[in-house]
């Protein structure tokens, strides 16, 4: 149904438009500006065309960071989505325990991101950290500041601990929205537990899982605060993800032109992959994939 037609509605939208303009559109334009010019100082700019883009695309360290980033996001999705769904399936559907479980699950999501890094630094320290110390006592020699593998393990653990609850909460919401009649019908049809999951729960969760996958992909692809606090991109370049590398270029080396070109490429990659995920997930389960 359409609503009353007058122009007053636009007045109400203006504040939002202003906020979006200042927070997104103007910075983006600035970045585009930087990416095609060489800036020596105020008022001294030279048009360089696609030079920065060519330089950035040829940078082998960027290629390494990009593959590292894909590996990281891939692992995040492979672990967090199934794990989140499993947690959601195991959660109680009613009773007092529901709110308790929800609160416990939401806890990691409430902690500021840099604090998370700090918590895990302490947790995994070989000398005093509960986890690091315990593993070392077992004689496994764990140190995320020295071993790239240990650094990755620690990062993955932190990431999974931090964000799986979000997936679980989304999946839980999807499960709760399935009418009881479906489960009753499945029971009557003699469906196994697996069949109920495969033919009812999974198809009905498709919408929320699409959102979960998109959110987790974008977020993990843009990850910065946690590795910055925990490993600083090391040891060596083992955990130097795109964002950390970008900051190194922009802030560390103050190469604003290449950094701007990098940002735009980065942005396009995220956009492209999000779009691909979305298209694939929309069509899966509708028989058109």
């Amino acid at each position: 149904m359409d609503k009353t037609e007058n122009n007053r509605a636009w007045l109400l939208v203006i504040p939002v438009l202003l906020v979006v303009a200042f927070s997104a559109i103007i910075p983006l334009m600035t970045v585009v500006n930087f990416s095609v010019q060489d800036i020596f100082g105020p008022g001294e700019r030279v048009w360089v065309g696609t030079e920065w883009f060519e330089e950035v695309l040829a940078d082998t360290r960027l290629h390494d960071a990009l593959w590292r980033q894909f590996l990281f996001s891939g692992l995040v999705l492979l672990i967090e989505i199934p794990l989140g769904v499993m947690i959601a399936l195991a959660m109680p559907r009613e009773g007092w325990s529901v709110s308790l479980v929800l609160v416990v699950l939401a806890l990691p999501l409430l902690i500021p991101w840099n604090v998370i890094g700090t918590i895990w630094i302490i947790f995994t320290r070989p000398d005093i950290g509960l986890m690091g110390n315990t593993i070392n006592r077992l004689g496994l020699g764990f140190d995320h500041t020295a071993s790239p593998l240990d650094a990755w393990v620690t990062l993955m653990l932190m990431e999974v601990w931090h964000w799986t609850p979000l997936v679980a909460l989304l999946a839980y919401a999807g499960l709760k929205a399935i009418p009881d009649a479906y489960f009753q019908a499945a029971q009557i049809d003699g469906a196994s537990r697996w069949a109920v999951f495969r033919y009812i729960q999974l198809p009905k969760m498709r919408g929320v899982l699409t959102i979960a996958i998109l959110l987790r992909f974008m977020d993990s692809f843009l990850i910065y605060a946690e590795p910055f606090v925990l490993t600083g991109g090391g040891p060596g370049n083992a955990t130097t993800f795109l964002s950390i590398y970008l900051v190194k270029i922009a802030v560390g080396q103050f190469d604003l032109g290449p950094a701007a070109a990098f940002s735009i490429i980065y942005f396009l990659i995220v956009l492209l992959f999000s779009w691909i995920f979305y298209q694939v997930l929309q069509n899966v389960g509708r028989g058109r994939a």
Binding site: A181, Q184, A185, G285, G287
Partner: peptide, 17 residues
């Protein structure tokens, strides 16, 4: 299931996929 009954619900229940 043990009673061997079948049921048609108010809102159609089909396995979408």
């Amino acid at each position: 299931a043990e009673r061997n009954i079948a049921q048609v619900f108010q809102f159609p229940v089909v396995y979408d996929t």
